[in-house]
């Protein structure tokens, strides 16, 4: 089983993306709407991937990832971001972000994300 935590506000824009993730029977998803709830849950359970929204109740997603990396670097991270590819690369350098996800991701993006995640997890075995 691959455990994913999705950290987002009340964001209906992610419903298609989330549905795409859930189509994979290996995937279990937990969704929280604040950084505090995410850190609480991450301290209790093991997650393979954290997907951070661009803005989480006022906290930039990349800021959340930076804090998460300092606490638990083993969790893979993906970030929803409106930045251009070059700007995102610069903003996320060193954080080891698995991939940038566009603002309105769909099932195709979910499939690509899972491919990338499984490639990394396979190398860790």
């Amino acid at each position: 089983m691959i455990n994913i935590i999705l950290i987002t506000g009340e964001n209906d824009a992610l419903s298609d993306f989330e549905s795409g993730l859930r189509q994979d029977k290996e995937i279990k998803i937990e969704r929280v709407n604040s950084c505090e709830k995410a850190f609480d849950l991450i301290s209790e359970k093991n997650f393979d991937l954290a997907v951070a929204d661009e803005n989480i109740a006022g906290t930039p997603g990349l800021e959340f990832v930076e804090k998460l990396v300092s606490i638990n670097p083993l969790i893979n991270c993906a970030v929803i971001s409106s930045l251009g590819a070059k700007d995102f690369h610069e903003a996320s350098e060193g954080l080891g972000v698995l991939t940038q996800i566009p603002l309105r991701p769909d099932q195709k993006h979910a499939k690509i994300l899972l491919q990338k995640l499984k490639a990394v997890l396979n190398l860790m075995m």
């Binding site: 670097p73 080891g96 190398l123």
Partner: peptide, 12 residues
């Protein structure tokens, strides 16, 4: 090992 984007923990 092979290096992939986001695979920082592989060498670790």
């Amino acid at each position: 090992q092979e290096h992939v984007q986001g695979g920082c923990m592989v060498p670790v």
